[in-house]
Design a protein around this nucleic acid. Structure first.
Lengths: 229, 229
DNA sequence: TCAAAAGTGTTGGCGCTACACCCATGT
DNA sequence: ACATGGGTGTAGCGCCAACACTTTTGA
């Protein structure tokens, strides 16, 4: 049976990072191709002998120099005219990362790689804007049923930082007392006993995620069910 | 830029149906190719000028004769050795349908199409077993946060049928009184005023889904949060 | 001593679980 | 009249939203 199909398979990654109280997306500037000079999501064509997962990781590494711990499939896009050179089906991934853990170092196809606040994303190549929107929605939902902070925060963090993270992503205000109670009730956090001095105001206790419980809840899910004020 | 990629793109559909108090999956028997004579999911290669969504619908129609109202993307599978003729990336879909609304009529590539209880699925081609498992998990989760019954039940149904549906899919027992209260509290059902006579026992009131509320809740989601007995 | 941010407790009400008996029909 | 399945009510309890002041530090 001869299959006369002429479709290319690509992967793209929507990688969110959180720094300076802002949610950011990682974009690269295309060095080649139709979208040359335009900003777009990191990603590229899948090689014949690598899986989809391997392909995203490789492309991320090549184009931005970073490697995320959290990376899961988001959605596949296959409209006929996504790319007007030829037909491309892309499998989009969602990644989360703490930008401070990496220095961006674009190599191969990308002439530049940069974090952009989600509030000010430039015009993007292809349908990448749509992909980011979907990724953002997914991230927002995830906050409600899975622990997510681990990938976005530094390894030790104050409760205020966690709270800020949620408020920033969800664009809502949270009651500090109730939020704290809920999070603590999941046994997700370990008190490190360390106080962070140096800022103004009362020093904050630093917490870390309890890895075991985190993994468990990641698998089982929970209902955070935050009520906003 | 020349891309030396040799990967085919396919779509596959995990279609669940519910009849005789049993959850069923739709399978076809391959007429051609490596998997000839084996049972597998309906699906096939995407044409150059059709979107992924169009492709699944077309393949379903061709191979089984049916058309589902509910059909959403499930996951994409791209392991290197899924198919040992050549590399195939498949975008899997999840479909729901009431088997009684359709007569199966395989045409083109399929020599047969048949419903199988999920409890007794034969050996399948490729990684299709894995895809079904994922689909089943997704269906189970969906029951908890989205109205789903509409596609699986006849247009008018008794409360017991709805309850049975949930119990069958989740493989759990539910308290009838509390279940009824929860479902009713969403305003999802309209009492048709019709009683179904003819069976033994007291006749059952028939309900239908309130389409407007159904659509709304499908979009917004809810927390059903069933407690089992 | 003031400004800034972190930390903390209680109450009232609502919602949910748990639970078992009566009802309408066919035979 | 009995078998079969359908339909219904409530009380008590646990949980959670709502809510504002105190503590610790640096300057």
């Amino acid at each position: 049976m001869k299959i006369n199909q002429d479709i290319k398979v690509a992967v793209d990654a929507v990688v969110f990072g959180y720094s300076e109280n802002t949610l950011q997306v990682l974009l690269i500037k295309q060095r080649f191709g139709e979208a040359k000079g335009k900003w777009s999501l990191p990603g590229g064509f899948v090689l014949n002998d690598e899986s989809l997962d391997q392909a995203v990781k490789r492309e991320m590494k090549e184009e931005t120099g970073l490697r995320t711990n959290f990376l899961e499939q988001l959605y596949s896009f296959g409209a006929v005219n996504r790319d007007n050179r030829f037909r491309v089906v892309t499998v989009a991934y969602l990644g989360l990362v703490n930008p401070k853990n990496y220095t961006l170092s674009p190599t191969t196809d990308a002439s530049d790689a940069k974090w952009f606040p989600v509030k000010s994303i430039p015009r993007l190549a292809f349908d990448h804007k749509k992909i980011i929107t979907l990724g953002l929605n997914r991230l927002r939902s995830k906050l409600n049923y899975q622990p997510v902070g681990f990938e976005l925060l530094r390894s030790q963090f104050s409760f205020s930082e966690l709270e800020q993270l949620y408020q920033t992503i969800l664009e809502k205000s949270i009651d500090r007392r109730n939020f704290r109670k809920k999070i603590l009730s999941f046994g997700l956090l370990d008190d490190t006993g360390i106080l962070e001095r140096g800022n103004s105001g009362r020093p904050a206790k630093l917490y870390s995620f309890n890895k075991k419980q985190y993994k468990l809840l990641e698998k089982e899910g929970y209902q955070l069910d935050i009520r906003f004020v």
